[in-house]
């Protein structure tokens, strides 16, 4: 199966939601030390849901393409629903199965998002 679906490449070359959010409620920088891909997710959270989201970073078509598609999806989503997301949701979102060698790339932005939410929740409890 060709993991380089046109949609992913189009997102890679013209990513949505790329950049920083100055007034973010949470952010997290995630690194794939194996290949040097890195993504920072910025979330603006209002009433337990994502009001806005942006990402910044550098990486391959799979990691950048999936970050672009994921951030589209995240807008308006409830925190509790995002926390439940996993590999299956990413595969559905991308419309391709990245396979074991590229799974880390495909899930990099979801991981960053979930870690950003963890720190957000921890801070909220203080």
């Amino acid at each position: 199966m060709d993991i380089y679906a046109e949609e992913i490449i189009s997102h890679y070359e013209h990513p949505h939601n790329k950049g920083r959010l100055d007034s973010s409620s949470a952010s997290f920088h995630e690194l794939n030390p194996l290949c040097g891909d890195e993504i920072t997710i910025y979330l603006k959270i209002e009433k337990g849901a994502v009001a806005d989201v942006k990402f910044d970073g550098e990486g391959c078509a799979i990691s950048i393409g999936s970050a672009s598609m994921l951030t589209d999806e995240l807008k308006g989503m409830k925190i509790s629903d995002i926390e439940k997301m996993g590999v299956k949701n990413v595969v559905e979102l991308l419309g391709i199965d990245p396979g074991p060698a590229r799974l880390k790339c495909a899930t990099l932005s979801l991981k960053a998002t979930q870690k950003a939410l963890q720190t957000y929740q921890k801070d909220a409890k203080k």
């Binding site: 070359e13 990486g59 590229r102």
Partner: peptide
Amino acid sequence: PGVHPHDVAAILDS
């Protein structure tokens, strides 16, 4: 140019 090395390697693998 314009293509991440990871993607180059993956397409060559195929």
